Amino acid sequence: MVVSYDDKRNFYRMMLNSDVTVTIIDDEINSTLVATCRDLSATGMAIEMTHPIEINTNVRVCMDSSGNTIQPLDVKGKVVRVTEETPDNYLIGINIAEID
Rank of each mutant, 00 (worst) to 15 (best):
M15I: 15
A46H: 04
I24C: 01
A35N: 10
V2L: 10
T83N: 12
L91N: 10
T57F: 01
P52D: 08
N89M: 14
V80A: 01
D19G: 09
L33C: 00
S4F: 10
S66N: 12
D88Q: 11
D6C: 05
K76Q: 14
I53R: 01
P52G: 04
D39L: 04
P87L: 00
S4I: 15
D39V: 05
M15H: 14
S41G: 10
V20W: 03
V20H: 04
V59L: 09
Y12R: 09
Y90Q: 00
E48A: 07
E54M: 10
T83M: 08
I29W: 02
D74P: 05
S41V: 12
E84S: 14
V2R: 13
V82D: 08
S41T: 10
N56Y: 11
T69G: 01
T57K: 02
I24V: 15
K8R: 15
M49Y: 09
I47G: 03
T86H: 03
H51G: 12
T21I: 07
L91R: 15
Y12N: 06
S41E: 07
V20S: 04
Y12D: 03
M45I: 14
R81G: 02
G77T: 12
S66A: 06
I29P: 06
D7E: 15
P87R: 00
I24T: 09
M14N: 13
T57H: 02
S65M: 09
G77V: 13
V3H: 08
N68C: 02
K76T: 14
V61A: 03
L91C: 10
T23I: 13
S31C: 01
N89P: 00
T36N: 06
D74S: 13
T36H: 02
E85Y: 09
I25Y: 08
M14H: 13
D6G: 11
S31G: 05
I47D: 02
D39R: 03
K76W: 04
A35P: 12
S41R: 10
T32I: 10
V2S: 09
T32E: 13
I55W: 01
L40W: 07
L91E: 08
M45S: 09
N56A: 10
L33I: 03
E28T: 13
R13D: 06
V82K: 11
D64V: 05
D64H: 07
T50M: 04
C37V: 06
D6S: 14
E85Q: 14
T86R: 11
R38T: 08
I25P: 06
V34Q: 01
V22F: 00
V61P: 02
C62G: 04
